[in-house]
Design a binder for these strands. Sequence first.
DNA 1: AGTATAGGCGAACTGCTGTTCGATGTCAAG
DNA 2: CTTGACATCGAACAGCAGTTCGCCTATACT
Lengths: 236, 236
Amino acid sequence: MSYDDAELDALYDLLSDRQKAILDFVERFINEQGYPPTIREIGEACNITSTSVVNYNLKKLVAEGWLERAAEKSRGIRLVRHRDSAKQMAVRAAEALNVARVPLVGRIVASEPVMLPGDDFGQYYDPDVDTIEVSKDMLHGLAPGEVFALQVQGKSMIDALIDDGDVVILRRQKTCNDGDLVAVWLPERNETTLKAFYDEGTRIRLQPRNPSMKPIYVHPNNCQIQGKVLGVIRML
Amino acid sequence: MSYDDAELDALYDLLSDRQKAILDFVERFINEQGYPPTIREIGEACNITSTSVVNYNLKKLVAEGWLERAAEKSRGIRLVRHRDSAKQMAVRAAEALNVARVPLVGRIVASEPVMLPGDDFGQYYDPDVDTIEVSKDMLHGLAPGEVFALQVQGKSMIDALIDDGDVVILRRQKTCNDGDLVAVWLPERNETTLKAFYDEGTRIRLQPRNPSMKPIYVHPNNCQIQGKVLGVIRML
DNA sequence: AGTATAGGCGAACTGCTGTTCGATGTCAAG
DNA sequence: CTTGACATCGAACAGCAGTTCGCCTATACT
């Protein structure tokens, strides 16, 4: 935990291909078998015929701090830093627990447009974006990848009990029904905003839930629905 | 995961003392060393002079489903059912993740009084009560044991943007400042309620945040503060 | 060209480790 | 009392596994 992901990856890149192969195999073996491999098992898996070569690289990995070894003991290999520790442990922990890690992709109604990850993005746990942990109860069985979060700026939804600074959890979807609270991207204005959605045929009415604010009218072509509000989290 | 704690404990009690000692030692050894012990290491730790006896009891533990063994492989012991699996894994997962498990102790403003666990309760993860997982960001560094959650019933705090059905996260504390949103227990009325707190000297004013509702006035002796609102979670 | 240096190979050695087997003790059922 | 199941013990064995050592190859530096 004393090394962050970027630093670990940088250190990992310093290793030779063989050392990477050995380290990967050891990690996989321990995860699958529940006990560490022998030198000869490592050699066989990594196409190394000589036990001394495995031993040599193992020593290197120990010196670099990736492993610990109990001298003279069979299978006396212990993982020290898992490259995946911080990231993947959090993923596994989230799976074990009733928790989803939702990417917090930005602030809504901000000067810059909020760039949402595409629908085709495979890894839900991009380390570059903040995440917020929410109870899976809030997702109603949706996959974590279908969900994202935005922090609300402004009081335009105050009557919907959504305050400035609240975090809204949204389900990624392109369509919605009248009256739904949705995040929409307005290409014309180059901004993302949170409003109640009403299709009036020739135009879309985006209705703030604040009596002192006027609705926005946009052409259907200029209104991309990003997602529908699933829940609200407020930290006081 | 297919066995709950009670069932596992019952099965554990069926084991002989030696088998318990062996199982405990194997668990401890793996946790401390990172790799499983040899038969002779087990024997030494459990005061068994013969390797065959260790082997004999190991076979029993495998037959009972506590362990798995890779035949002919040194240290080929793998733990199958940890007695602490379900509960402690959730705890460890919560620690690894930026998540706290907060006991959801009941609904507020209900006919029955909400019984809060005492201040001295040691285990924060009582399996008897529901828990809700919240981001530790909401706790502002507080220990999970200082925090609990209640589900709000009624719209008395609607102007504080807290709706019927919302879950409020509270910090356990006995005092508060004027204007704080607090959960208070009213012994006279035998109920717990969520209100804004105002000390008017001779009496306490518990102010709903709803213009259509009147404040409650109680004697300071008849008003026990349970906790102060840290955050709000709403699932739509 | 000479020479460190790093990485690799294979064999041999030694101690570790799981397995097996015969013998012993205990205890309850027949 | 005998029997058999269960648990234990000690010893021997064969294979497993970490270590070491001499030798080889390629690269880079002098």
